[in-house]
């Protein structure tokens, strides 16, 4: 029983990162109607950003977030201007197709670039407090991962408030719902796209940082994280940041349960099964309004 609870706790902890990874993908898909399959590569870059800030400049990984997030915002803006601004000019029906081409190209390029720059080695940030664990009734909770879960929730909550309460947040939601109607109310829809894409990239950067401290990064993790994020987006549905976070937790728990019940290899399968079941039974997602 203790082993089971321990597994579920670890699943919950990584589930927070799944939620954070998915939040950016969901925002970009919901607003731009563009599927950025290189989202996992953006997470990978965020992880390396934090790793090198630590290795070269001695940054604590959590402190590195304060640089990685604005850096990723700016990088997202550049990516939007150079690549995705062309896609959103196309009619809505062709956007997904075109974005897949651009996204896969970008993913391949970033994968190759990362191997070239940083070798294929796995890297992980080791801090002085890396091994710290709190024990609750025989269940060990790694502190770093717990902090990551809390931070992931806080970041998603922050973006939720931004979207719910601010003028441009409202404009982004309006654009997601009906971009022509948004134009008619005077919203510069292109700017809403830019903001959404930059925020989505910043969320990816933050997720990457937390991955590099609690887990590890290597040039090949991109696709894996894109898939996790995609499963969570399908699970949660579009349009709700808190829903996406809960979707991430659900995936983390489901993976842990599958690994405990059927063995390790089933961990990777359960996400795809969920993906399939949700698409068949409730294609709008569990939490879509």
């Amino acid at each position: 029983m203790t082993a089971f609870v321990q597994q579920m706790v670890l699943g919950l902890l990584i589930g927070g990162l799944y939620g954070l990874a998915a939040a950016g993908l969901s925002l970009v898909f919901g607003v731009l109607k563009v599927l950025n399959v290189a989202h996992g590569q953006l997470i990978m870059l965020g992880g390396y950003g934090a790793f090198w800030l630590g290795a070269l400049a001695g940054f604590d990984p959590f402190a590195a977030l304060t640089l990685v997030i604005p850096g990723a915002l700016a990088f997202g803006a550049v990516l939007y201007w150079t690549l995705f601004a062309w896609v959103v000019r196309a009619s809505e029906e062709t956007r997904v197709k075109n974005s897949l081409l651009i996204g896969f190209g970008l993913a391949l390029a970033l994968d190759a670039l990362a191997v070239r720059l940083w070798t294929a080695d796995e890297r992980s940030i080791t801090t002085s407090y890396a091994g710290a664990v709190v024990s609750v009734g025989g269940i060990a909770i790694p502190l770093v991962r717990l902090a990551s879960l809390v931070l992931a929730g806080a970041l998603i909550g922050g973006v939720h408030l931004l979207l719910a309460r601010t003028r441009w947040g409202r404009a982004i939601r309006a654009t997601a719902e009906d971009w022509e109607a948004a134009l008619l109310t005077g919203i510069d829809v292109r700017r809403a796209y830019l903001l959404a894409f930059a925020i989505g990239t910043a969320l990816a950067g933050a997720a990457g940082t937390l991955v590099s401290v609690g887990y590890s990064v290597s040039p090949s993790i991109g696709l894996e994280w894109t898939l996790k994020a995609l499963v969570v987006v399908v699970l949660a549905g579009l349009g709700s940041m808190p829903g996406t976070f809960v979707g991430g937790l659900v995936l983390g728990l489901a993976e842990a349960a599958a690994a405990w019940g059927f063995g390790g290899p089933y961990r990777e399968m359960v996400g795809l099964v969920l993906f399939f079941v949700v698409l068949v039974a409730r294609p709008q997602g569990l939490f879509a309004r």
Binding site: R173, A174, E177, E180, A181, L184
Partner: peptide, 8 residues
Amino acid sequence: GRRLFGSM
């Protein structure tokens, strides 16, 4: 068709 933002 009004084109309101129905979820708001």
